[in-house]
Design a protein around this nucleic acid. Sequence first.
DNA 1: TAATTATGAAACCATTTAGTATCACGTCAA
DNA 2: TTGACGTGATACTAAATGGTTTCATAATTA
Lengths: 105, 105
Amino acid sequence: MEQEQLGFRALADVTRRDILRLLAEKDMTIAEVAENFDMTRAAVKKHLTILQEGDLISVHVSGRSRVNALNPIGLKQMFDWFSYFDAFWEDRLSTLKSEIEKDLQ
Amino acid sequence: MEQEQLGFRALADVTRRDILRLLAEKDMTIAEVAENFDMTRAAVKKHLTILQEGDLISVHVSGRSRVNALNPIGLKQMFDWFSYFDAFWEDRLSTLKSEIEKDLQ
DNA sequence: TAATTATGAAACCATTTAGTATCACGTCAA
DNA sequence: TTGACGTGATACTAAATGGTTTCATAATTA
């Protein structure tokens, strides 16, 4: 699957977005991440795999542990997707703003 | 469903992201949007409904036509979701940058 | 070395998703 | 006012998704 699609797929689930916010605080093993959710470790592991496929987290093996960390580069690339619309919304938002101001006169 | 989830769900499909890019150029009826894809008008209509539920487009009925337009506010809100990670990636990316520079010395 | 711990992986299930085909409905033009 | 046109809506299907349970494997530690 294409990288852009893998990224958006990874973000499409609320549990995975919550995992990203957790990992923004500190790196965690699978077990540590799983403590924060009301589901099995196996389910959390699947989410972590999808996040990794989306390049939003990186994993580094240490002994029998797998430490999951947020990947700033992948996350930034998702952010950058929206910049395609930058010109569009700046234009429209300022138009909206001036229309509202005109209405208030 | 929660608004954040509706937005991310809407973005999780490549056809819908393509529709957004089309609508960034100009507003279109369902039939006009459908001309750009190799699928039935009914399928495109479903995608437009999901985009509308995600607040990423707005629809304005004109006679027997439905004109779909990009919603800059909804799109901006999705963009803003990522700002939660702003501090994180700016910090990490600059760390990465300085590590790479150190390696090159 | 044996028990424990952290994880990987496969099989299975219910629900959602993305598409199809089909038909009904409101609007516009001749 | 009768078609034709643009759309809405429903029923259906195959595949993907998000969860479970269960078992295997590799690394620690007593």
